[in-house]
Amino acid sequence: MSPVVLWVGGLMLAAAAIIIVVRIERGPSMLDRTIALDMLVGVVIAALALWSAAAERTDLVNVLVVLSLVGFVGSVTLARFVAVEPEDEGRILTPEEVRAHDGRMRASLAKESKRRVGGREDAMRRAYPESEDPR
């Protein structure tokens, strides 16, 4: 295995991986990302094969077997449960939007947990009416 092939092939695979990551970022839907991830698995398989040939590591062949066998599970699962997503949800949010979304989530969580703790205290008071501190 000449180092020229290793370098040229490796660089091509690296470029392919970067382009695929760009496609994953762009989406626009979950399914586009899924097939891009499938392609990334293909690139990883090719890279492992290249590495195995260059370093004469025959143990990596087992990894190839496993990858080729289970690589499809993720995309099948995603394809099975994918739903119609609104146009706007198929993109990655900006940091501000993420912060706003997190804030909303936190507020509603806090409300929910307060309601639930209150409910439990009510139940305790009903169960043990004499005791002052139910805990």
């Binding site: 092939v5 091509m12 392919a16 991986a17 760009v22 090719a46």
Partner: peptide
């Protein structure tokens, strides 16, 4: 082996460009 590796990697790259 070299030619096979070269063509295989090139196909990966072309497919990535196509997907983009």
């Amino acid at each position: 082996a070299s030619i096979c590796f070269f063509l295989g990697c090139a196909l990966n790259l072309i497919a990535a460009i196509g997907a983009l």
